[in-house]
């Protein structure tokens, strides 16, 4: 009985569709590794101060990064912060930034886009012109303005990006709803006297949400980059906070080593940068795979 349930069958098909794709397998395995690191962070790198696990421990204040040694497996970066510790706990930061921002802005974007597309007319006009206003402002400048207004800190970075990120989702959601709202089954449910909210929840959103979901998944990676960039500028996490962007920022004076040995500080820039690239790559591969699996046009070919 349970095996034959149609929803389960579709889910199985979707899963098999996803896992036939080699790039999807790479993406999902990478994310699985990151998830394991994030969950097991206290075991992989026991924090020095129990109450403040996100603060990277550092011995000394020397500006020169130290190469990998027995004590610091991946070496230290400028200010003697332990790179290994930063990478492990920075994974949690990356997930937090990516998932919270995308989750939050998806909720806003889907709600706004659905209301605009479903009701149409004057409601649509007002909402979409507001979205246009938000869209007209340059992305990073707006984020920075919000952070300046709200104050520094990771939570404010998350809030600032989420407050702007929803504009893309609202547009995409509205576009897919414009074609859905005039279908016969939507008219039929209206005639049956079903409330607007229920029509939106049962008929409109489940049918139109997939494009937005795929974009959202792909954005998780790029939002981590944006947050890192803000940390790089010194607007994000406080000094010493385990955050990949900040670690790259710390190493920015040591991209090229002293004359004669340009690769001396390679670990300081390459390791946090490389981890970040892998994280973004993983989400992009997953986004691609989900698009192939959810798009009804290519799904069964």
């Amino acid at each position: 009985m349970l095996n034959n349930h149609p929803k389960l069958k579709e889910l199985k098909f979707t899963a098999s569709r996803i896992f036939k794709d080699p790039s999807a397998i790479i993406g999902f395995s990478l994310i699985a590794v990151f998830i394991v690191i994030a969950i097991g962070a206290p075991y992989f790198a026991p924090p020095k101060w129990e109450s403040r696990p996100y603060i990277m421990p550092h011995k000394g204040f020397s500006r020169m990064p130290e190469p990998p040694s027995k004590e610091h497996i991946l070496g230290t970066t400028s200010g003697q912060y332990d790179i290994y510790y930063g990478i492990i706990w920075g994974t949690r930061t990356a997930f937090r930034v990516g998932l919270v921002v995308v989750g939050f802005s998806l909720v806003i974007g889907v709600a706004v886009g659905t209301i605009a597309g479903y009701f149409g007319g004057i409601v649509d006009e007002i909402i979409m012109r507001l979205v246009d206003v938000v869209l007209a402002l340059p992305y990073l400048v707006l984020v920075m303005a919000f952070i300046v207004a709200l104050g520094k800190g990771l939570d404010n970075v998350i809030l600032a990006i989420a407050v702007i990120q929803w504009r893309n989702y609202a547009r995409v959601m509205r576009a897919s709803i414009l074609t859905l709202r005039d279908l016969d089954y939507v008219h039929a449910s209206k005639l049956m006297g079903i409330s607007h909210l229920k029509i939106m929840l049962t008929h409109i959103i489940p049918n139109g949400i997939f494009p937005v979901l795929v974009i959202g998944f792909m954005d998780i990676g790029s939002i981590v980059i944006t947050a890192s960039f803000l940390s790089f500028l010194g607007l994000g996490a406080p000094l010493g906070y385990a955050d990949w962007g900040q670690m790259v920022a710390m190493a920015r004076d040591h991209i090229i080593g002293p004359p004669g040995n340009p690769m001396q500080y390679w670990h300081a820039i390459l390791i946090p940068g490389g981890v970040m690239i892998l994280f973004v790559l993983a989400w992009n591969l997953i986004g691609d795979a989900l698009r192939d699996a959810f798009d009804p046009k290519v799904r069964r070919t």
Binding site: L183, D184, Y185, N207, P296
Partner: peptide, 29 residues
Amino acid sequence: PESYMRDLRGDKISMIFQEPNSALNPIFT
């Protein structure tokens, strides 16, 4: 009133629509 029509439609009078693709919702069995 509209409520009378609501009970009538699909019961005493019903209609076959031209476009089966838009009459059926793709997410329900």
